[in-house]
Simulated assay, not measured.
Amino acid sequence: MASPDLLWQLVKKNNKFLVKRNGNSNASVQFSKEPNNLYNLNTFKFSGLANKKTVLISPAGEGLDVVLGTSKTKKGNKPANSINKSVMRRDFRKMAKAVTNQT
């Protein structure tokens, strides 16, 4: 497995998930649609491709159910098995506390 810095240097300008938009004046804005990128920003800090530890929060079906996914650092070579997903069916405050404790 390559270092996260090397991976970021390889994928920061060209990858499948990169979205480039025109911002104010002449500056362009870059977003990213990659999995495990909570803020959808194209930066090393929030990258789901380059970082070893990532977090995924998504809705799970009906109601207020939430899927919390965290990446396993030892399974980096096997992308299908690298995310540990758990479904939370609690009230919002308990889920927020559980997410904070897990991350």
Rank of each mutant, 00 (worst) to 15 (best):
M1K: 13
A2Q: 06
D5G: 15
L6D: 04
W8Q: 02
W8D: 01
W8R: 05
W8G: 05
Q9D: 09
Q9G: 12
V11P: 09
K12N: 09
K13T: 08
K13H: 08
K13S: 04
N14W: 10
N14D: 03
N14L: 07
N14C: 04
N15P: 03
N15K: 01
K16E: 11
K16F: 01
K16V: 11
K16I: 07
F17I: 04
F17D: 08
L18W: 13
V19A: 06
V19W: 12
V19I: 13
K20F: 00
K20V: 04
K20Y: 00
K20Q: 01
N22T: 14
N24C: 12
S25V: 09
S25M: 11
N26V: 02
N26D: 03
A27R: 13
A27F: 14
V29F: 14
V29H: 13
V29T: 11
F31Q: 02
F31D: 01
F31H: 10
K33A: 12
K33Y: 03
K33N: 12
E34F: 12
E34N: 13
E34D: 12
P35R: 14
N36F: 13
N36C: 12
N37Q: 03
L38D: 00
Y39A: 15
Y39R: 10
Y39S: 13
Y39V: 14
L41S: 09
L41P: 10
N42L: 13
T43F: 07
T43P: 10
F44A: 02
F44Q: 06
K45L: 04
K45W: 08
S47A: 00
G48A: 01
G48S: 03
A50T: 05
A50G: 03
N51P: 01
T54C: 04
T54F: 11
V55D: 02
L56D: 06
L56P: 05
L56I: 08
I57H: 05
I57Q: 06
I57K: 10
S58Q: 10
S58P: 03
P59D: 01
G61F: 08
E62F: 09
E62I: 15
E62S: 15
E62G: 14
G63I: 08
L64W: 12
L64A: 11
L64P: 10
L64E: 14
D65L: 11
D65V: 11
V66E: 00
V66L: 09
V67R: 15
V67E: 11
L68N: 06
L68G: 04
T70W: 02
T70N: 02
S71C: 03
S71D: 00
T73S: 06
T73V: 07
K74V: 01
K75S: 01
K75D: 01
G76R: 02
G76T: 05
G76S: 03
G76F: 05
G76K: 03
N77Y: 03
N77P: 05
K78P: 07
K78V: 02
P79E: 12
P79L: 07
A80V: 06
A80S: 10
N81V: 06
N81C: 08
N81K: 11
S82T: 03
S82M: 05
S86G: 14
M88Q: 09
M88R: 08
M88H: 13
M88A: 07
R89I: 04
R90T: 15
R90F: 14
F92S: 13
M95N: 11
A96P: 10
A96N: 07
A96F: 15
K97S: 01
K97D: 00
A98G: 09
V99D: 06
T100E: 00
N101F: 14
N101C: 05
Q102S: 09
Q102K: 08
Q102W: 03
T103E: 04
